[in-house]
Simulated assay, not measured.
Amino acid sequence: MTLVSPYYVHFLARRDLGAGHGWYAPVELDSDDPQGAGLVIPVNHDGTPFDEYWMGVLFLEGSTRQIEYFQFTRNSTGSFKLETVPADIEFVERNVPPEQRALHYMGDFVFPDLEYRLVEIVPVKDEIYDLLLGSKEVVLIGCNPFELYRRKDGTPL
């Protein structure tokens, strides 16, 4: 598969840690820290979202795990659409105060998207997670950090 957009959806946690208030990869947090995290997208320097992203979807079948990437596109209303199995899913930006909208990634990993400010996205219909999680066969992961992210010294995770 040839990817057209250079941008990905990411699964990150918003925290206020020593490095500052912003986004961190869940794997960077203490195991005692609650793992509340969400899907985020990088935005332009003026705060506007890009038109296209790639969303990683983990498909589980027995002991087989396969990640496929699907196009995640912004439509004319400003929402985003992910066309995948078992259902198309529409997302919007999470409604937060302006000063909390677009935050920097504050962790220690390197990937081009993480140089931009990031905003959280949520499904328009909350029940879509029940549909996905209830199936236990499909998980939205954003991107695969173990495939794409690097440590600052360039080594893989």
Rank of each mutant, 00 (worst) to 15 (best):
L82E: 02
L82H: 04
E83D: 12
E83F: 12
E83N: 11
T84P: 00
T84Y: 00
V85M: 12
P86R: 01
I89Q: 07
E90P: 00
E90N: 03
E90C: 00
F91V: 08
V92H: 09
E93V: 07
E93M: 10
E93Y: 05
E93L: 11
R94K: 13
N95G: 02
N95M: 09
V96H: 07
P97M: 06
P97D: 10
P98H: 09
P98T: 11
P98Q: 09
P98A: 06
Q100A: 13
Q100H: 14
Q100N: 14
R101N: 11
A102R: 15
A102N: 12
H104R: 15
H104W: 05
H104V: 09
M106W: 01
M106Y: 03
D108A: 09
F109D: 13
F109T: 14
V110D: 14
F111H: 10
D113T: 10
L114D: 13
L114R: 05
L114T: 14
L114W: 11
E115M: 03
E115H: 07
R117L: 08
R117I: 06
R117E: 06
L118C: 05
L118T: 08
V119N: 04
E120F: 07
E120L: 02
E120P: 00
I121W: 03
I121S: 00
V122M: 10
P123K: 03
P123A: 08
K125W: 09
D126N: 13
D126M: 11
D126T: 13
E127D: 13
E127W: 02
I128R: 01
Y129F: 15
Y129E: 11
